[in-house]
Design a protein around this nucleic acid. Structure first.
Lengths: 327, 327
DNA sequence: CTGAAAGCGCTTACAG
DNA sequence: CTGAAAGCGCTTACAG
């Protein structure tokens, strides 16, 4: 492996000069610059990253901590982060916290030890905090400590779903919320509910019932069954919006059990746009989280010089598929 | 940040000695060792990894290249590799090749530049090769160049599926293979076919038809339809084994369209055990790939001193669920 | 605009 | 068994 010394010798300059052209420092005059570059090419010189790291105390690597890379949403985030990082010729070091606060701490510490130039964390618990970090840290999707949070605009997204259902003519609607102990769940519900209230008028009233559950399939199925079977047929909602795709898919299941046609008898909308959403029958109308934009924004944040500590809420869009229709 | 010098001063020894206790070099006598450790603890000393890397020319990081982390199988692999690496206090640097040979090369080169201590690659094309690598490289799941391959024992797994169907009493069986240009597809098919041939006797013959397709849902659905609708009812297979879960789920779909009860009228088996396999109705019987063992073996291979260049085929097991039943 | 030189924090022969 | 010292390959004030 040739070193900077070899290049310097071959180009007939000092190592300092080579280092400067490496750093794209334009103080080096054109002719020298070219000579050095030629020498580098000829020797197939590649800088030793460890040496650079020792001097600068930082490497071209972004740390990423997710609860579980096996979760498709996090995997998509990871993929896009890796692509964004690659654009700036940075790599990413991946760590799973396995939904454990202690592991999360350890992983972040390990990343920091390796002198990464920043870390993006999809946190496992809202409360966790970090004592020391002299590099940028941003929380993504779920808040980590006091670090700025980049997330989907849940409020806005839910409003959009509400609008969609309203425009289709639905006036008897049920909303299945997530666990209201979670920030996301609250925001999504508030967006939906506030919008419906705004749209409801004395001449054209909307009936809305709100139900709280978990974010998973079973919860959606249970609550869906309750809503659909316990209400007198004439007063049954014509549309159900769920706070997650998993819940919505649960509703789809129970609708099938109850021999209700979706979207003929009932419109169903989800939130997230997980992979399964476009695989189920009927394919699910949902709010797609802006994964690319989330990733891009998180990476930008790492490179931002002035550390804006402001949260960023990124708007998603409704993906209209087969599970919703005019009433 | 305290350095090794600070520790040396505090413990009243030389930096060499500190370095030696750091390296768990037992040439340092007990009392000194304790003094040094005490000093390290007191100062909260953490070694500078970049400096170490510069000297040793290697960091405690394993490089991992996958075609696409968004693929659940690769995500699971990545997760388990990360866990195995963590056991040895190594981190993992993740890169996606996006199914592109050039990108794959670039990513591996980038990883090697960063002086990782080894790289695991789930390759995108069988043919690719690497010129230089002075650290261990292993291919996982899909062969990369001339490097040893660690993969599921596809042959054995398919035999197990064949056995399962045979034991359930099926004697008219269809097999949907993957694209035979792919090594995996060939192995799976050979395992299945050879086993069935072995089990078939003059007194108790087995009828087997083999069909080639892609590994995806649609291909399974198309071929399934052909098999089930074009054969006279009395001669219709009572079981279909597919070379992938996706194909098998396709078959499930078309069986539903054709009003065939699974497993009443037809048993269906897949291969892989993707997440969806246990979510579909009926839940799919399949061969679970030994993901943990694959990951563990790959990481082991990286740490192996003597680089065995032998391939390793790891056996998986049948997961019996609801899509197969006695005929 | 360029060179000479110090130094980042370790590890590891080499003495003793 | 331990210390003194060289050196890994860079970057970056400091001169000139």
């Amino acid at each position: 492996m040739p070193t900077i010394k070899d290049v310097a010798r071959k180009a007939g300059v000092s190592v300092g000069t080579v280092s400067r052209v490496l750093a794209k420092n334009d103080t080096v005059k054109q002719p020298l610059q070219l000579r050095v570059q030629a020498a580098m090419k000829e020797l197939e010189y590649k800088p030793n990253l460890a040496a650079r790291a020792l001097r600068t105390n930082s490497i071209d690597v972004i740390g990423l901590v997710v609860p579980d890379i096996t979760n498709p949403f996090f995997a998509q985030l990871a993929k896009n982060i890796e692509m964004e990082a690659a654009k700036r010729s940075h790599s990413v070091m991946l760590a799973n916290s396995h939904d454990d606060v202690e592991t999360e701490k350890t992983q972040i510490a390990a990343l920091l030890d390796r002198a990464v130039c920043g870390v993006i964390v999809v946190s496992t618990s809202d409360g966790s905090d970090l004592d020391t970090a002299d590099v940028p840290v941003v929380s993504l999707d779920r808040r980590f400590g006091a670090y700025p949070l980049i997330a989907t605009d849940h409020y806005d997204g839910s409003q959009k779903i509400a609008d969609h259902l309203y425009e289709l003519g639905h006036r008897r609607i049920a909303y299945i919320a997530g666990p209201l102990s979670m920030d996301v769940a609250r925001r999504r519900r508030e967006g939906f509910v506030s919008r419906i209230k705004m749209l409801s008028t004395a001449e054209d009233p909307i009936e809305l019932s709100v139900h709280e559950g978990q974010f998973d399939y079973d919860s959606g199925e249970d609550i869906g069954r309750k809503i659909l079977s316990e209400t007198p047929v004439g007063k049954r909602p014509t549309a159900i919006a769920a706070a997650s795709d998993q819940q919505a898919i649960g509703v789809l299941r129970c609708a099938r059990d109850l021999k209700l046609d979706v979207p003929g008898d009932l419109s169903v909308a989800g939130f997230d746009d997980i992979t399964l959403a476009s695989l189920v029958v009927p394919r699910l109308t949902t709010l797609r989280q802006p994964i690319e934009a989330l990733a891009a924004s998180a990476v930008d944040q790492i490179f931002e010089t002035k550390t804006s500590s402001d949260d960023k809420a990124i708007a998603g869009n409704v993906v209209k598929r087969e599970s919703t229709a005019p009433r």
